[in-house]
Amino acid sequence: MKKLTGTIDQKTRKTLKAGEELLYTGIVYTARDQAHKRLSETIEKRKKLPFDLNNAIIYYTGPTPSKEKNKVGSSGPTTSSRMDKFTPLLLNKGVGSLIGKGSRSKEVVNAIKKNKAVYFITIAGAGAYLSKRIKSAEIVAYSELGAEAIRLLYVEDFPLIVAVDSHGNSIY
């Protein structure tokens, strides 16, 4: 299976095709509902963001806590469509890749195409399985949100399927 490591830049994103399966090793940032709301508000107020959005990979997940330090427990994808209303803004601000589960709105697909971004899905319902591929975790922002805080995860051979490619082709 194809492997990708480190930054997934626009040049790499343009080579990915809807339906393609790959394994990713590198850094992803977790963000779900409340974190998206806060990031959007921060952008609108032109304030400083908690991490660099340029080519960033956002993973929609809210993990269970772990018994070990700097780790997370089960950590599968949450439903991406709930983030649809915030996603075009984040893509316009530089986010390059998204990871979640399920379909996206027309507006998101258009924003992916415009920004040459990519939307991946990972194995829905396999939180325990995926946790084994998350090697470390640290909170980057909004720790008071608990499971919804933004975390930096270092993942190894994390399974991804290209669901919407940079040309706007969708697997669904």
């Binding site: 427990g73 599968g76 939180g127 325990a128």
Partner: peptide, 8 residues
Amino acid sequence: DKLAICQD
């Protein structure tokens, strides 16, 4: 490993 089947 006594992990939740799903994080939710």
